[in-house]
């Protein structure tokens, strides 16, 4: 699969700093089209920082500085010509804790397409909302509750609503920052199924704390430790035959 796909996101020598502290150190990593890349590693290893630098969410954090080069389809995302709002429509994001807007279910999904002028009329917008909710396998559960507040859904449903919200913009890459850490096992299983369904349409980058989850959902794994990318490769290879002792130690549960 690796050989057939082309590179979607390419990172060269990416370093991140929060003020004086360095959170990422010279990370080189490529993310391919239509794959699920899992980022694993102990807390504070820089995997979330790396994820958030892919759609420039770190811009919000004052004192945060990114060095190196990250390109999306060969285009530098930190370059002058890059409009950050457009970048974020191409690189969607799902957060650790479900964070639906304090608006109706419908508006939660419709908001993105609306502000980007993706629908010319109401029925088109409704079409986008329905498609997105179907792809997030939430449609059947919420089709009669479109006017209710997004916060009235269960935790797992809220997270799928957030995924639908990201899908509605028709992104190329979806970033997920520990999407299941606030969910119960059943809701987690549904999100994992969903990730498997979505991989055909998008490149997914998933940060996870669970080594088992990474094994279940990902095509490839990147292991981060103390701000460095230690090892990356096909999930099977990494789990069966890690090249680095630190990787071995982490996946066998000796530290982390």
């Amino acid at each position: 699969m690796e050989g057939l796909s082309r590179i979607k996101v390419e990172c060269r020598g990416v370093s991140a700093f929060y003020g004086e502290t360095q959170a990422l150190n010279e990370v080189n990593l490529s993310i391919y089209d239509h794959e699920v890349m899992a980022l694993i590693g102990p807390s504070g290893c820089g995997k979330s920082t790396f994820l958030r630098s892919l759609n420039r969410m770190n811009d919000l954090v004052s004192g945060c500085r990114i060095e190196g080069e990250i390109s999306l389809d060969g285009e530098d995302i930190y370059g002058r010509g890059m409009d950050v709002t457009r970048l974020r429509t191409r690189v969607g994001m799902v957060f650790q804790k479900p964070n639906p807007f304090s608006k109706s279910v419908f508006e939660n999904v419709a908001y993105g397409p609306r502000i980007h002028g993706m629908a010319s009329n109401r029925s088109e917008l409704e079409g986008i909302v329905e498609t997105s909710l179907r792809r997030a396998s939430l449609w059947e559960e919420v089709k009669d509750r479109m006017k209710q507040p997004g916060s009235s859904l269960s935790g797992g449903q809220q997270q799928r609503l957030c995924i639908a919200r990201a899908i509605a913009l028709n992104p190329e890459v979806i970033l997920m920052d520990e999407p299941c850490s606030a969910l119960d096992p059943i809701a987690t299983a549904r999100i994992e199924e969903l990730i498997a369904e979505l991989r055909g349409s998008y490149s997914l980058v998933v940060v996870t704390h669970s080594i088992q989850q990474a094994a279940r959902i990902s095509d490839r794994v990147a292991f981060f430790h103390l701000g460095k990318l230690v090892e990356d490769g096909l999930t099977g290879d990494i789990y069966n035959d890690p090249k680095d002792d630190r990787t071995l130690g982490y996946i066998t549960g000796r530290f982390g």
Binding site: T85, L87, T89, M93, S102, Y111, R165, A166
Partner: peptide
């Protein structure tokens, strides 16, 4: 207003003004 709400708005490509007027102020 939680940071997560601002992040949600920005993550779908809202500008700062849109994030403030559509989400932060109403909340």
């Amino acid at each position: 207003v939680p940071v997560s709400l601002r992040e949600a708005a920005l993550s779908v490509g809202a500008t700062r003004q849109q994030s403030v007027f559509h989400h932060v102020l109403p909340s």
